[in-house]
């Protein structure tokens, strides 16, 4: 039988809120099985851990929505972390945070210019800037880590004035919600989706496609640097290989969150929920006594299952392409 009607609706519901279901299921499983998982202190830890990758995922999701790829997020994140810690003794937190975010933005701007104006594939451009920025980071700190003595701000960011939501979580979530609002409700934000859906159409519709590309990559650079900077402030230190594992985790989370590599699909909040899911998974598995290996294995499995499910449903839909399901049903009823 061909699937139609209610069945289709249910599967579309599952598809649309897939990541939310996944998150809830992971949460429930861990609540039941993992010892010491279900308490306020642990939840706060989970939310704090989420912040880094969730904020990086903002810009990355926008780049994915445009149908491009940004591999330089990991290096950008480290750059932000390094600069905010490195410049703090000279300029204080505010200026150094600004410097960090702006330098991330400059890297993003270069990415965007090379992609939009020089028309080089984004995979190549960002692979190049990834190594360049990582080199700059090593050069800046001479290959070592940086520390700060001023631990006041870091402590304040992690203090729980409101239960579950220390300032760093609050700031991150607000930034994410602002970006989600821009992407969903403003004309400017919808432009990214149109651009990702079909560049030609976007251009014909009067969008300044080059400017969108440049701005998208700039945002990606800035949010990555901001995330790194915030994380470094809470740690009171910056390591030169901070962002190495982040790149792949953010890519995985964004795809699990429902963004499509083909472009035109994706949501910042869903990416955040995906990051949260992975963090819950890691946290729970750690509490269950599983090592790093199991965590990597499981995040790989989740990514694999999501990709398989997505491409399999597309595969089946493509099989039905050109068939008019409603007519076939009528025909079979008459008989």
């Amino acid at each position: 039988m061909l699937k139609t009607g209610r069945n289709g609706k249910i599967s579309s519901m599952v598809n649309r809120y897939r990541i939310v279901w996944l998150c809830i299921i992971t949460f429930l499983v861990m609540s039941i099985f993992a010892p010491h998982f279900f308490n306020l202190y642990n939840f706060t830890t989970i939310l704090e851990t989420m912040c880094l990758n969730a904020v990086v995922a903002i810009g990355f999701t926008i780049v994915i929505i445009m149908g491009k790829l940004d591999l330089s997020i990991g290096s950008n994140l480290t750059l932000g972390a390094m600069f905010v810690i490195g410049f703090e003794p000279h300029f204080g937190w505010t200026i150094s945070l600004l410097i960090a975010v702006i330098s991330g933005g400059i890297v993003g701007l270069v990415n965007g210019l090379l992609v939009a104006k020089a028309k080089i594939d984004s995979f190549i451009v960002t692979l190049g800037t990834m190594t360049i920025v990582q080199g700059i980071v090593y050069l800046y700190a001479n290959g070592g880590a940086l520390y700060t003595k001023d631990t006041g701000l870091g402590g304040w960011l992690q203090q729980s004035f409101i239960p579950l939501f220390p300032p760093i979580v609050l700031i991150s979530v607000i930034i994410i919600l602002v970006f989600e609002g821009i992407l969903t409700f403003t004309r400017y934000g919808r432009g990214f989706y149109i651009l990702g859906g079909n560049k030609e159409t976007a251009w014909l519709a009067g969008l300044k496609t080059d400017q969108y590309l440049i701005q998208g990559f700039t945002i990606s650079g800035m949010t990555a640097a901001l995330a790194g900077a915030l994380f470094a402030i809470t740690l009171n230190s910056a390591l030169p290989d901070l962002g190495v594992s982040s790149t792949m985790q953010v890519i995985a989370a964004t795809i699990i969150g429902g963004a499509s590599m083909a472009g035109g699909e994706g949501s910042v909040v869903k990416s955040m929920v995906a990051v949260l899911t992975l963090v819950i998974l890691y946290n729970g598995l750690t509490l269950l006594g599983a090592g790093n290996s199991i965590q990597i294995l499981f995040s790989g499995l989740i990514l694999a299952v999501v990709v398989l499910q997505e491409s399999f449903s597309l595969y089946q839909r493509n099989k039905l392409r050109g068939q008019r399901v409603e007519l076939l049903k009528e025909f079979s009823l008459k008989r």
Partner: peptide, 26 residues
């Protein structure tokens, strides 16, 4: 998977990389 189901090659091979790496570490 990439040939028949047309999964995105970057993401799929990344997932395989994760799974295999995790398995070998384990």
């Amino acid at each position: 998977v990439v040939g028949v189901y047309k999964a995105n090659p970057i993401i799929w091979t990344l997932a395989v990389e994760y799974v295999l790496n995790g398995l070998m570490r384990w």
